[in-house]
Computed example of a mutant assay.
Amino acid sequence: MTRDVAARMDEVCGNAPRLEPLSDEALGEREMDVILRMRELTAYPVEQPVHPFFTTLAHQPAFFEAYMQLGISAMASAELPQRTRELIILRTGWLCGAPYQFGEHVVTARKIGVTADEIERIKQGSSAEGWAEGDRAILRAAEELHADAMISDATWAGLAERLSPRELIELMMIAGHYHLTAFIQNSLRFRLNDYNLGLESV
């Protein structure tokens, strides 16, 4: 998929956020408990203020808690290797034109050994040269879920040779969760953190 990166970055990040985040003091105990759990998993410094992404979603506390719990499960309970999860998330983020999501997960992926060359090939997709067949199947699944809301028989067969039933369920759930994340972050126009280069990340 060819994407005008500059135009998309301007569209999503070039305007003011659409909702104001709540103050930290306005968060309830349940919301703070979930946020603290996520901070533990990501080693986010406890002295830092709560991220505006969380304080904005907390306008709807029941949905916020359910959304966050799925993200926590994907991090803490998944059997899929972290590299596989990041391939799914990055390809989904790129296809959704999601600057915040893509840029944040480039940082995460680079920390676990995904190379700059691989990041560029994730942008090109499963048809790019150089992928191992397992990685290619993961990327193709993300593409098919994005384009057709299902995984084809051929791609499923390739995945099922390598993944357990639990891992197959996780793959689809993670792809869906990060579509939802892209919808939210793009529509609310979240600002990028200083280290986050959005769709220009490598």
Rank of each mutant, 00 (worst) to 15 (best):
P61K: 08
P61R: 06
P61G: 06
A62D: 15
F63P: 02
F63A: 15
F63K: 11
F63R: 13
F64V: 02
E65F: 00
E65D: 14
A66M: 13
Y67E: 04
Y67Q: 09
Y67D: 09
Q69M: 11
L70M: 11
L70W: 04
G71S: 07
I72E: 02
I72L: 08
S73Q: 13
S73H: 13
A74E: 13
A74I: 12
M75I: 10
A76H: 09
S77C: 05
S77L: 11
A78M: 08
A78H: 03
A78K: 01
E79S: 11
L80C: 04
P81H: 13
Q82N: 07
Q82D: 11
R83A: 00
T84K: 07
T84P: 01
T84W: 12
R85G: 03
R85A: 04
R85V: 06
R85Y: 03
L87T: 04
L87N: 05
L87Q: 02
L87F: 14
I88D: 01
I88Y: 07
I89L: 01
I89S: 00
I89D: 03
L90Q: 05
L90E: 06
T92E: 05
W94F: 13
C96Q: 15
C96V: 00
C96G: 08
P99M: 07
P99R: 03
Y100N: 08
Q101E: 15
F102E: 06
E104Q: 15
E104D: 09
H105A: 07
H105K: 09
V106S: 12
V106M: 11
V107W: 10
T108C: 11
T108S: 13
T108I: 15
A109I: 01
A109F: 05
R110G: 04
R110Y: 00
I112H: 08
G113L: 01
G113P: 09
V114S: 04
A116K: 14
A116I: 08
A116Q: 14
A116P: 07
A116S: 15
D117W: 00
D117T: 15
E118R: 11
I119K: 10
E120D: 15
R121G: 03
R121E: 06
I122N: 05
K123M: 07
K123D: 05
Q124R: 14
Q124H: 11
G125F: 10
S126A: 15
S127W: 08
A128I: 06
A128L: 05
A128Y: 06
E129T: 13
E129C: 06
E129D: 15
E129W: 08
W131T: 07
A132Q: 11
A132T: 10
E133S: 13
E133F: 00
G134M: 05
G134W: 02
G134I: 00
D135P: 00
D135V: 03
R136W: 05
A137I: 02
A137T: 08
I138Y: 09
I138K: 03
L139M: 10
L139Y: 09
R140V: 05
R140P: 09
A141L: 02
A141N: 08
E143R: 05
E144T: 07
H146D: 12
H146E: 09
